[in-house]
Design a binder for these strands. Structure first.
Lengths: 187, 187
DNA sequence: TGAACCATGTAAACGGTTACATGATTTC
DNA sequence: GAAATCATGTAACCGTTTACATGGTTCA
């Protein structure tokens, strides 16, 4: 049901095609809600069949045609109903932490290399989020109004990445002091 | 495949029953990997059928009988093979952030109440993790050895909770300055 | 008396991923 | 010539959640 909430919330800000929505998922809420085009098209079909969003097809010459979906009055009611539901605790699935948890069964060098690699990715993510925040802060106040709430979630993402990077530095420091590869050592 | 990794990693530290494993999921890796007893029993049956874990039934008088599973040599090989897989980026699904993202469609007081409520839960989580860390730090060094890697993931959880609480304080401050309920206001 | 804990399972339904399918335009 | 971007979809499979199912013990 939360994919539905995500789609309605994004369309509530502005209309979009399935493909355009997918990019907005990736760039604006991807750090706390992911989806794929397969899921998205299915949900858009369902929402349209239920009369919660309107659809207009735009014929393009140089690109494939696109269907632009718009939230209608019924969709807004649905959105507000979904927002009444009590909040649930977040679900995190991090297989890298699982690997680290079982770290004594892997070569230490492998873990360190993977940590360094992830560190680069998180650094890039943080830079990306900060660029979006800067872009927001450069908007005129009347445009900022519309994004007052979304920007709070962006700040959450920034805080998360900063915490991750701080932890990774400490973790690499701790690992440097640990004994080497124990993967072949009996316990 | 990662539930399998999680189960093998936990059994690699010490044997457990399905029910006991479930509690260890909740207390030791629950903040980055969740499961239910239904999933767990199914996976344990599969692992046993594949000969990766051994099973002994213990008859108890005051409590129901329990099946204690132990990682065997084949299971350790399987664990090490799963650990060779390249790390994947974590998957986070946080429906509260979705609600906050669409915050202009909810009464501000509701959001603030939910944030305060979550803050209490995160504070309790942090206290719980810190208690486990303190318990670890009080172990003799030879026992600490076994948990050197798991404790890194615990520190990750602590960092995450601290970042969350810091963000929530800032968010509540920001929300206090925002205009009131816009849920009924046209845009 | 009711809730929580101990302990194990099955089955249906739902949500999400991977594979398959097409095809033009743009950029390296 | 290969890869990325734009743009939409179907279908099979797998992972996860919810509901059903049982039953004794302990604690408030």
């Amino acid at each position: 049901m939360s994919l539905r909430l995500a789609v309605l919330a994004l369309l509530d800000i502005k209309p979009a095609s399935g493909y355009g929505l997918l990019r907005r998922f990736q760039t604006s809420i991807g750090y706390f809600w992911q989806t794929t085009h397969q899921q998205l098209y299915k949900e858009l079909h369902a929402l349209h069949a239920e009369g919660l969003i309107d659809c207009k097809t735009f014929v393009q010459h140089d690109k494939p045609d696109k269907k632009v979906y718009t939230l209608n009055a019924a969709g807004l009611v649905e959105l507000q109903q979904l927002l009444q539901k009590p909040p649930q605790l977040p679900k995190i699935k991090d297989s890298f932490l699982l690997k680290l948890f079982a770290g004594r069964r892997i070569a230490k060098a492998t873990l360190i290399a993977e940590l360094n690699d992830l560190e680069q990715q998180h650094r890039a993510q943080l830079a990306g989020y900060q660029a979006i925040l800067d872009q927001y802060l450069s908007l005129p106040p009347e445009h900022q109004q519309r994004y007052l709430y979304p920007v709070q979630t962006l700040k959450w993402g920034i805080g998360l990445e900063q915490a991750w990077l701080g932890w990774a530095a400490q973790c690499l420091h701790d690992l440097a002091e640990l004994p080497d590869d124990m993967s072949a050592v009996a316990h």
